[in-house]
Design a protein around this nucleic acid. Structure first.
Lengths: 245, 245
DNA sequence: GAGTGGTCTAGACCACGAG
DNA sequence: TCGTGGTCTAGACCACTCA
């Protein structure tokens, strides 16, 4: 099942990976131009570019049009902590992420209406908050949070962290559903996050319901696969254990 | 930020997508050969192939070397249900998945040792069960489950479902940790699952601990992003709600 | 304007699958 | 053997970035 003759693309990608991992190419450094690399490896530019595309998909290399190919800094892996209730949505190992937020009011339609469990015919007024997390200068992840307009705080300033969303003046949460899938980013997401279109993202949809059964928040999160993962911890109560059969 | 002039690749991909969605190309059907398509769209073969690669990454098209490009059947989306305790790991909407399993004994090393929380120097004897779920004839997803050898059932036959793993003769579970990330498949995974190397997979690592704190199971699951997602439901108890500040 | 990556061409030759 | 996809070439021309 394994190719007897590895393709030139793979050979080149392996070599570049090795050179990056050994520090021959430093993090943040610009690689030689594609033309130079193609000459060095004695391949044509399309072949070399396909090798770079592999590294790009792994998040090792970032291409910037008109400037060059850059070795990405090793990531601080950020862990999204699921389970809704407890405090920190983001477990940040060292440096905190900087968030920018933009608030918009709109009406529920299509997917949003389904998420918020409102009839699509009688649209609900929503407050959308678009968060872009930054790690240093480069964007890290993306979150769109929708809250029914009457539950949104009257003032909607930029807030320091995603966890500090309007969770205070509402009935307590009763249930949080989080659905995760892996996919490639949309073109828009790839542009905003400055990631390759071939880098997988973790797409997370979170719906929070309060004790009255009303959906009080829906969130769409996009976490690039090379710098974020999600962790769910379930502690089983004795009742659950015994009901397991 | 949006390209004013869409590339030929995108134009062709859009057209093929449209033809597939309108049933002009039926599910399971073979597309015209790449040479024919290239002629039809008046582009060169590499350009046409890059358009097909997009559809492949979306799971709409399956390439089979020497045979052609085939329209994939629409997927039954399978939902992996997290949270460990409750019964069904897989929520299967209609047709159940068929599982094949292979049991091996080996020793914990590297990643496995870390997962099972044993010192890497004194390797632990493990039983590995490799599951491949099939939907009809084509592979669906992949699971590798590791259990300490002394906890594995003496007989290790092929079992009907993944949930029926050795969970009966052990101390009850106390905690389940599930870590999810999005990435591209390894070459091996792509081969086994017959998916494109560019189709994102959901990678799930599950570690179950019993009441004594011992790791009794580690599982590595690979769920292709086009046919599976994961769902976590958290019901908040009153204590958790009140401790939220 | 110089240098970079982005897209595309019009072929060539190789590897795989089925008859 | 024949038709398919897989890989690769050696350019061309366009678009973006920066000085």
């Amino acid at each position: 099942m394994i190719r007897a003759v590895p393709s030139r693309r793979d050979t080149i990608a392996d070599d570049l990976r090795h050179q990056i991992s050994t520090g021959n190419f430093q993090a943040g450094e610009r690689l030689p131009s594609e033309a130079e690399l193609a000459t060095h490896y004695a391949v044509s530019t399309p072949t070399l570019r396909s090798a770079l595309a592999l590294l790009q998909g792994e998040g090792l290399v970032e291409k910037i049009h008109g400037r060059g190919n850059f070795v990405r800094r090793p990531y601080r892996k950020i862990t999204y902590t699921g389970g809704g209730g407890e405090a920190p949505t983001w477990a940040t190992p060292s440096a905190p992420l900087h968030m920018t937020a933009r608030t918009t009011n709109l009406e529920a339609y299509g997917l949003l209406a389904a998420l918020l469990d409102v009839p699509p015919r009688s649209p609900l007024r929503l407050t959308e908050v678009l968060y872009i997390a930054h790690e240093g200068k480069s964007p890290h992840s993306l979150a769109r949070i929708y809250v029914p307009h009457d539950l949104a705080p009257a003032d909607s300033p930029v807030r320091g962290e995603i966890a500090a969303r309007a969770a205070d003046l509402r009935p307590p949460l009763a249930e949080v559903q989080e659905r995760l899938s892996a996919r490639l980013p949309t073109q828009e997401e790839a542009t905003v996050l400055r990631i390759a279109a071939s880098l997988a993202v973790l797409s997370l949809t979170r719906v929070a319901t309060d004790v009255t059964g009303r959906v009080v928040e829906a969130a769409l999160l996009v976490l690039p696969g090379d710098r974020a993962d999600a962790l769910f911890t379930t502690r089983l109560t004795t009742e659950e254990r015994s009901s397991k059969e």
